[in-house]
Design a protein around this nucleic acid. Structure first.
Lengths: 248, 248
DNA sequence: AAGTTGCCTTGACGCAGATCAAGCGGTGAA
DNA sequence: TTCACCGCTTGATCTGCGTCAAGGCAACTT
């Protein structure tokens, strides 16, 4: 554990989010020390599969940089994305040792891993970590349930608008970027990945993006960059009843 | 705390599942005592709403008997069920004090409640409870994600078959009922509730149930009772790749 | 006995989104 | 320079499920 690491720890953002979010927030030096001893980093290239569904998984991890996805696949190839992992998101499941879905790196990804056994042991001794993990898991459960509403009941147009809004919100939580009063968003996903996320086909995704553009809800710059002139309008298109306090 | 209660505690099933699942499994008498002091029971009638989305929710609870549902509703009335609470399931969210979805009693329901504040305090002192809760939440997250695959990618027929399989499996975990080699299942939901769960309309639910019956995948006895002659056949119809070890 | 209500089934029809297919622009390799 | 490939767009057509509508059955009320 270098001095550099320690500095990170006592700033409000570290290179290893789990350390920060689970432990550092409370600045418990001994817990930190224990975590430091069992952690290691791994890198993955864009497109690379990190874990296959059903594989033995003997670590838990936290995304340091890049974007990874969780997907489930049916025998005939139908795919559904069930989670999007952004930096600071947690993956892995204490108390189970095989993965339930494929984890794939969408961009180049760096993960901060902890071997599961020692991590679990540490959890039994440091309630803060278990509690923090519980909070994070409950958050994920909430967003999974929001996603169920989207998948089950929203139209294609609403789905696209929701996705853009969600990405904008997540982006904004990190660094809000505005130019000329517009909210700017980079789509980190291909049309096909969006389709897998939204339960649509890539053609429908493309058509609806074009439609939203035509109607002035979003502005397209290139294929992956979106500007949002009016966030409330977007939320209306998404069928959401509130903006979740993002711009409050 | 009555003698009766104590007896339950040291049997392998209590009237209050959280006590059993979170604490009693490890037989920690003092944790139990603390839980006992802050718990109380509440009953709800079939159809009654337990909490409205957005309401202040100052307790967490565990279902003792009956069936409750979690639903989200859009302004225009489109509804999506996002969870089905069977006995022993947990509801409520430590660390947040408003409900994120409607909780409704489908049948008469008895809940074992804990006021949130003291429950949270207790959690900080007793790592077992937080850990058990984490495990339960991770399980819920897994099933939410399985449900996302269903909502996003399965056909109406597959959705119905999946629902029947899931209810059969849950039922079986408690008490497996077979007559003449058949698995018997009572549907605890109306057609409309099934539709809200599966992201369909009640007409489609009805049609697909009829179709599965016509094709011999299920036998209907009355409107709510189903017999399954061949569970593997049902799973095949559901598009699942394994039976999750239920009959192993 | 007749009417009401809740839950369910079935039919006819229309539409949102899937499927099939063609083509475009950018990028990298030969 | 040409070719191939990938990600994307757009058009034409098809289809599964939603929508609208009618009616059946069982339980309950008057």
């Amino acid at each position: 554990m270098s001095l550099q690491d320690l500095q990170f720890v006592h700033q409000d953002c570290g290179d290893c989010p789990i350390r920060h979010r689970a432990v550092c927030a409370r600045c418990e030096a001994d817990e930190l020390a224990r975590l430091e001893q069992i952690k290691y980093y791994r890198s993955y290239q864009a497109g690379q599969t990190i874990v296959w569904s059903g594989d033995r998984m003997d670590f838990v991890a936290s995304v340091v940089s890049g974007i990874a996805t969780l997907t489930q696949t049916m025998e005939d190839g139908r795919r559904q994305m069930v989670g999007l992992l952004l930096p600071s998101d947690f993956v892995g499941r204490p108390g189970r040792n095989s993965a339930a879905y494929d984890v794939t790196a969408t961009t180049d990804v760096v993960m901060c891993c902890f071997r599961k056994k020692p991590f679990e042991e540490m959890m039994t001794q440091t309630p803060h970590v278990a509690q923090r993990l519980l909070e994070m898991t409950l958050d994920e459960l909430d967003s999974a349930r929001e996603w169920m509403l989207l998948l089950g009941r929203k139209t294609a147009r609403e789905k696209i608008a929701s996705l853009v809004a969600i990405i904008a919100r997540r982006d904004a939580a990190l660094n809000l970027r505005r130019t000329k009063g517009m909210l700017n968003v980079d789509l980190p996903l291909t049309r096909e990945e969006m389709a897998d996320y939204l339960g649509l086909t890539l053609e429908t995704v493309s058509r609806q993006i074009s439609a939203l553009k035509r109607d002035g809800v979003i502005h397209l710059e290139g294929k992956r960059h979106i500007a949002i002139p009016d966030f409330d309008r977007l939320l209306e298109e998404a069928g959401d009843d509130s903006d979740g306090g993002m711009l409050a």
